[in-house]
Amino acid sequence: MSPTRSEFFQGVRASLPIVAAAAPFGMLFGALAVDNGLTVGEAVLMSATVFAGASQMVGLELFGASIAPWIVVLSVFAVNFRHVLYSAALGRRIGLFKPWQKPIAFFFLTDPQYAASEARADRKLALTMSWYMGMALPVYVLWIVEAYIGGVFGSLITDPAALGIDFLLPIYFLGLVLGFRARPNWLPVVIASGLGSILAFYTVGSPWHVSLGALAGVAVAMLLPPQSPEDGEIAP
């Protein structure tokens, strides 16, 4: 096998745990998308073009509430803003990529893709476009298929409330919030955002509670003394 092919298949092997872990959420996205008024085609389009699970769920939550499109787009951007850091950090690692390959690679830069790429670079293995796409393509292709499957089955569900489907997103978001708990000043940020969003919900009203609450949390993060300087640092 040529080095390129074997690297591709090394990437495929590395992708398998991610494929398994993402599958339920890929299908859940499709089902919830249909529950929130999207067509199966729109759900598939969103998985194929956005390819960022948490932000797709955030988009759904807001689609369901008839909110101005630009606010939905802004909220998706806010959730995906962390990719700016991945992108900056990965930029140092992809010296083996040809210039035309980099813009393609960045499209597939999900959280697990970033983590796996950093891990491979740490083990002094060659981070090539072949390995990178071997890792990315199974996750991507199945993510799209799962949106379709979830969407088709989601449209068969007649009473989402009885099955708890309508309340899965807050539970899922809570899990994501907890997943960030190793970050500096996580607790004060989450408390400020949570209280800020509740306050804004009752005073200004939805959907502004999202941006105002998030602003409160980010302001707290900026005002508190910084913790653990190695976290989020870009220069090696």
């Binding site: 939550e61 803003f81 962390r82 919030v177 000043n185 940020v189 949570g194 969003s197």
Partner: peptide, 15 residues
């Protein structure tokens, strides 16, 4: 920047 994802997601849970 580090605080953004948790801050945004918390606003979708708390209300």
């Amino acid at each position: 920047l580090n605080a953004v994802p948790a801050a945004v997601l918390a606003t979708l849970v708390a209300p």
